[in-house]
Amino acid sequence: MFVILEKKRLNPDVLEMKVSAPRVAEFAQPGQFVIVIPDKTGERVPLTICDYDRKAGSVTIVFQVVGLSTRKMARLEKGDAFADFVGPLGKSSELISESPEELSGKNILFIAGGVGAAPIYPQMKWLNSHGKKADLILGARDAGQLILVKELKENANKVFITTNDGSAGTKGFVTGPLNDLLLNRSCHYDRIIAIGPLIMMKSVADLTRSFNVKTIVSLNPLMIDGTGMCGACRVTIGNQTKFTCVDGPEFDGHLVNFEEAMRRQAMYKPEEKEHDHLCNMDLAVEESHSKSLK
């Protein structure tokens, strides 16, 4: 069993959990992910590794509550355990294979959208610990949705914050500051790493294509096994079919077929709605219950 060592609410919809998983912690690298099974009847839920502590044998995940499984996970408390916690899976981030010399001469920009801040964090932290601070554009729906701001700022050089409603930073999308940096200030970046909702990554890739800046995105398709066995996670990269769980999750954003990826991600929407209906009722009951306790 994989015991939850710490639980923290980063915003109303996003939770952080530190989980005891020594084997995963021992081998984890930035950019990789785990698959979590909440309980015996649960689904296999892929989540990015946000932090790891090899000595303590723990791995940190950050997840947004969006449907049945993440809701099940959110109900677990410190001291409870996940039925399964598999990993590390996928390739590690390309960055970490580069030597400090290679990195020191490079200008890197991260772009995080929503819960995408979570997978960005280990990469920035890793870079910082190797003597390199990168810039960051951090976007969210509103101020309340911003997560890990302090942790990210500690590891970043310049930070630009955007919210859709303007409740924090500049109003608008991450592409605002991006356009400003690339077009108006003529900043040169050797590489941009964008992680967030597909639509955000697509917009970023569309924009950077015209500036010819190498752009890495991290895809999050539906997955089952996460080891290359089912093909559920297949995506088209430059007209070739790839399995995200083994060939990714990071890919060249300019080669990704985003339309297909978005279409495939929504494949099980109707089913999940049905589930959701029941669960929302559960949740409402539960929430009123927990409120009455407070």
Binding site: T41, G42, E43, R44, L68, S69, K72, I224, D225, M229, C230, G231, A232, R234, T236, T241, E260, R263, R264, M267, Y268, E271, E272, H275
Partner: peptide
């Protein structure tokens, strides 16, 4: 890669390993 095309492994894994045919299990 259209929606609705899947490998036998995916289909059978959903059904056998994840017990998708059983309503008590979450995998669709």
């Amino acid at each position: 890669n259209l929606n609705g095309v899947l490998s036998a492994n995916e289909f059978l894994t959903r059904i056998n390993l994840m017990k998708a045919y059983n309503d008590d299990y979450d995998t669709p």
